[in-house]
Each structure stands twice: as structure tokens, then as C-alpha cells.
Design a protein around this nucleic acid. Structure first.
Length: 505
RNA sequence: GGCCCGUUCGUCUAGGGGUUAGGACACGUCCCUUUCACGGAUGAAACACGGGUUCGAUUCCCGUACGGGCUACCA
């Protein structure tokens, strides 16, 4: 019988959760949904030195904003496997029990080496032209551990509470073979694996031990994580094996990384030319906050959509998917092996697709605060009409201002390019006639404006619409002109034309 | 350096032993439009290289190159 699908997202609270992390969370969420399983948030706070205030809360908020909330875990309700913070689980003695099991079966040992001694060992090896110095089957024989020290000495050190770690005893030369859902079979020789620290001298487990213990205890069915974990997977396989849990271990899936658009490497927060965090992140150690996708004007649906298509796609030409649609389609079979460079331009396009689906009312409500900030306040129906007109031109709500501010403010300058090309000898006369005709109009709506415009043209000859646009708005482009005129209003249009015609000869 | 993973247009990708190698973003052109967009059409643009295997390889295998990851008492 297949195990119930239970997956986890297990970040460490060492900073803001960036988009790579969100993508990992997303794939976990999607997979859980698809199989009607559980999605768990576990906080891996085993490194006290890297703990960052506010990070955990940020992670919870970010997942919530993205619309991919876990249904179990820190911040999302306790299941029967609480607690979900590793620091709390450590206090329960969970990890120590497993570490002791490994020691008893001879697969782990105590090591008393100080960090100075470890440094010395590395230096010595480097001097001897060893390219990758590591604590392993060979070097452990020269170090101070329960494998080299006399039994009574070890006992004495332990009783004296001498600082020590517990290390995994990795065999010297043994092929470790494991299966990854995305990558297939991977084989690594144990000579490449060092004797990983399982329990640190402060009593905390390392990631390597802790995640295995928790995945087992929490009945995790699939361990889905970033590709950066692939090299340590062989050590993890060994731990499962030595614990006798090979058959209970979760299936492994290592996700491809999200890479920087132009430069190299995985995406980093320093890149700064586009947001890397879902929500703005203020690191307590830094002065300036990082802008998030939310603050940049992205819809969470768009953000999630973008992320979903980085390293996965449904196999057809469709690109716009809601989270629910993604969940119905998602499959590790279709997850790529190679990393994907993130394209900020396409990200904007995605947001535009979602913006266009919004109603005029939603857009008006969203834009209102921006307008207010600029010092304007208008009736809702007016703002809705405004949004209807301008929405085709924007990718973000805040762009409504830049793209349509002339509806609210009379222009101070007029597009030189258009005027130098299209402003003719008789332009002033014809547009003055148009202005007069406009001011005599009884009804101020698109059809009256259109009729009036044509009537003046019949009398005075062709009137250039782009010139008219420039006279009213100052700029060469914008939404449907006559609709704009209607919106701006008869009085304002007349005033603006008058002002413009006075400035132009 | 070592180990591991990868490699289709600039980017995200579809495809897969025989295809005019498809789509999307960005870019160019045209149509629609008395303005501006949207929209539509269209163009340029890719199988990293070298060896195999095969009647045939972009697709399978091996090398090379390139890219990425890891190489901590960090995750």
C-alpha cells in the first residue's frame, strides 16, 4: 500500500525566505494537494548562531501571501507530530536517542577534537597536497575520538563533560546508490563523504541528523528540496540504513535551482535589480529593507504562476495557471533536471495577464491609495472609468498613475516630436475652431465628441488626432482619445485646449 | 582542485531515432486604428562540440567543453 503523501517545507529561520525557497515550498504544496496529502512547515532552527529575529514569522507570512499555506506545522496548527520546531524537539531528547542508537550499533562515534585541532588537521592535509581535506575513514585515525582513544579515556572525557560531537562513521570505500525521482539513480563512493557531525557540541543536532529523524517521526513520504542537497544525500542514505530505516525513508526529489538572469549562480538577494523576496524583508542586521514582489506590485497568483513554470511545465503551450489548476497538473515527472535563469521581463508579463483579469472596481480600489498619495480624490465611478481606459497599458497597479496622470493634472509641456512633425500653419485656426465647437456641445460623451470632431473637420479640413491628444494630455500616447476626453470633462478639455493654443503659434 | 548534477532560439520551454524542431517573453515588420493600446499576422532567433551505435541522430552511448551545486560543530 502506498504511504499517505506527507511533504514538508523545512527552512531555517536565518533570514527572509527568497523566491528559490518559495518555489521549493510551492512544489511541495502542489504535490501534497495533487495527492490529497499533507503539507507541513517545519522550522529547522538548529543553528543558534544564525538565528534571525523575525525570520520565522516572515516565512509564515510569505507562504500565506502566496496562497500556499501548509496545513500542519509552525504557525499553521499542530498535528500529532508537534512540536515542529527542531529546537523544541531537541529539548525532548528526540535526536539524542537516535544518535545513541547509531553509536551503539557502531555507526557513529564521539569526537573530542577542538576547532583548533580540526584546523590543524586541514592545514596538515593541505600541505600534503590533499585537495579536499576531510574528517573521514582515514583521517579519523589521527584524531581524538572514541575510535582512537582508549575506552576508559573516552568514558572519563564524557563524564567530565568534555565538549564533543557525534560523528557518522562513514565506510572507507563503498558505493552508495540512491534513487531520486527527478534525477534517477545516482551513485557516489563513500570515499567522497566525510564523517558528518550528527550532534554538535552544544547538543543540537545538525541538519543531517535532524531532518532524517523528523522525516521519519513525521511520516514524511517525499523529501523535496533544492539541488544543493544532492551531494549530502549519500550521507543521509547511510544514516537511514544504519538506523534500519531504509524501507521507511521518504522518496527523494532534488529540485533544479533558480539562477540569476544575467550573471552566474543561484539567485541572490544582492542582485537587487528585481525583487528576490515575496514580501519586503527587513533584516535586523541591515539598514535597508529588501523590496518584495508584493510591494513591487505583483499579485500573489502571478508570482506563484511564474515560480511554477521555472523548472516545471505541464507539457502544453498554456502558461497561465491558478494554484488549483497547477495542483491538478503538477507532477515530478515533468520537473526539469537543469537550473532555470529567472527572467524579470517575463515576470512582468505574467503580472499583466493577471491584472487584465481584474474588474474595473478591483483596479479602482487598488489604485485609489496611490492616487490619494498624489493628492487626488475622485468618485469611484470616475476612477473605475479611468481604470477601464488605462488598464491595457499597465503591468502593475501603481503604473496607472504614470500612464494616466494627465487625466488628473493638466500638462505643463507638450511632446515636441509630435508637434514639430504635425503642427501645421493652419493648425492653430482649426483647433481653435474645434475648441469653440467643443465648448458649445450640450452633451459631453464619446458620440457627441466624435460627431463634433467630424463636423469641424468637414469645415476646416483634417484634424490630427495625435496633435489633439498632445494639446490635452501633453504626451504622444495614451488610451482611446475620445473616451479620454469624455472622462477629463468638457470644462477641463476646453481650458486645456485654450492654454495649449496660447502657448503654441 | 575533487566529487555530483546538468546543457534545445538571448531567456522560459515543447518535442524526441526520420519534424518545415512548436509555443511564450523580449525584439523587428505588417494589418487593424484619423490617436494610443489591445488584438491579429509575420520575421529574425536554438538542438554546445567531437566520436561512436544506427539505413538514419537534436533524440541513445562515450568523451570534451561549458554551466551549476557541494566540498563547516550552516542549512
Amino acid at each position: 500500500m502506498e504511504k499517505r503523501v506527507r511533504v514538508r517545507f523545512a527552512p531555517s529561520p536565518t533570514g527572509g525566505l527568497h523566491m528559490g525557497g518559495v518555489r521549493t515550498a510551492l512544489f511541495n504544496y502542489l504535490f501534497a494537494k495533487r495527492h490529497k496529502g499533507d503539507f507541513i512547515l517545519r522550522i529547522e532552527d538548529t543553528d543558534q548562531t544564525r538565528f534571525v529575529e523575525g525570520a520565522e514569522e516572515y516565512i509564515i507570512n510569505a507562504l500565506t501571501w502566496c496562497g500556499i499555506p501548509p496545513n500542519e506545522g509552525v504557525g499553521f496548527g499542530n498535528g500529532k507530530h508537534a512540536p515542529y520546531r527542531q529546537s523544541e524537539r531537541k529539548d525532548l531528547g528526540i535526536y539524542k536517542t537516535y544518535a545513541e542508537r547509531l553509536i551503539e550499533s557502531g555507526h557513529a562515534y564521539y569526537a573530542f577534537d577542538t576547532s583548533e585541532e580540526l584546523d590543524e588537521m586541514r592545514k596538515r592535509l593541505e600541505a600534503a597536497k590533499v585537495v579536499a581535506p576531510q574528517y573521514n575513514a582515514v583521517t579519523r585515525q589521527t584524531m581524538r575520538n572514541s575510535l582512537t582513544l582508549p575506552e576508559d579515556e573516552v568514558k572519563r572525557l564524557l563524564e567530565a563533560e568534555t565538549p564533543h560531537v557525534v560523528r557518522l562513521k562513514v565506510p572507507r570505500n563503498e558505493d552508495i546508490r540512491f534513487h531520486d525521482i527527478i534525477r534517477g539513480w545516482v551513485v557516489v563512493n563513500s570515499a567522497q563523504v566525510d564523517d558528518k557531525v550528527l550532534l554538535k557540541s552544544d547538543g543540537m543536532p545538525t541538519y543531517h541528523l535532524a531532518h532524517i529523524v523528523d522525516d521519519i517521526e513525521m511520516e514524511i513520504s517525499h523529501a523535496v528540496r533544492g539541488e544543493e542537497w544532492l551531494p549530502s544525500a549519500p550521507a543521509h542514505i547511510l544514516i537511514y540504513k544504519y538506523l534500519g530505516l531504509e524501507n521507511d525513508m521518504p522518496k527523494l526529489a532534488h529540485l533544479p535551482l533558480i539562477l540569476n538572469p544575467d550573471g552566474h549562480g543561484k539567485i541572490s538577494k544582492r542582485e537587487a535589480r528585481f525583487p528576490v523576496f515575496p514580501l519586503s524583508w527587513q533584516d535586523p542586521r541591515e539598514a535597508t529593507p529588501y523590496l518584495g514582489y508584493k510591494e513591487a506590485g505583483y499579485y500573489p497568483e502571478a508570482f506563484v504562476n511564474i515560480l511554477a513554470l521555472l523548472g516545471w511545465n505541464p507539457g502544453n503551450n498554456e502558461e497561465i495557471f491558478s494554484v488549483d489548476e497547477l495542483a491538478a497538473l503538477f507532477d515530478f515527472e515533468r520537473v526539469h533536471k537543469s537550473g532555470a535563469k529567472f527572467d524579470p521581463e517575463k515576470a512582468k508579463w505574467f503580472n499583466q495577464q493577471y491584472l487584465r483579469k481584474k474588474s474595473d472596481e478591483e483596479l479602482a480600489d487598488a489604485f485609489e491609495p496611490f492616487l490619494k498619495e498624489k493628492g487626488f480624490s475622485v468618485e469611484k465611478p470616475f476612477l473605475m472609468a479611468f481604470c477601464r481606459l488605462v488598464k491595457e497599458k499597465v503591468q502593475f497597479v501603481h503604473e496607472f498613475w504614470e500612464q494616466g496622470k494627465y487625466v488628473f493634472v493638466a500638462p505643463e509641456a507638450y511632446d515636441e516630436k509630435v508637434l514639430s512633425k504635425k503642427w501645421k500653419e493652419n493648425s492653430k485656426e482649426s483647433f481653435t475652431a474645434l475648441m469653440t465647437a467643443f465648448s458649445n456641445l450640450k452633451n459631453w460623451d464619446v458620440s457627441s465628441i466624435t460627431t463634433c470632431f467630424h463636423a469641424v473637420e468637414a469645415e476646416k479640413g483634417k484634424l490630427d488626432m495625435q496633435v489633439l491628444r498632445v494639446l490635452i494630455t501633453g504626451v504622444a500616447g495614451g488610451p482611446q482619445l475620445f473616451d479620454m476626453l469624455e472622462l477629463i470633462g468638457k470644462t477641463a478639455v476646453s481650458d486645456r485646449m485654450k492654454q495649449a493654443l496660447e502657448k503654441l503659434d
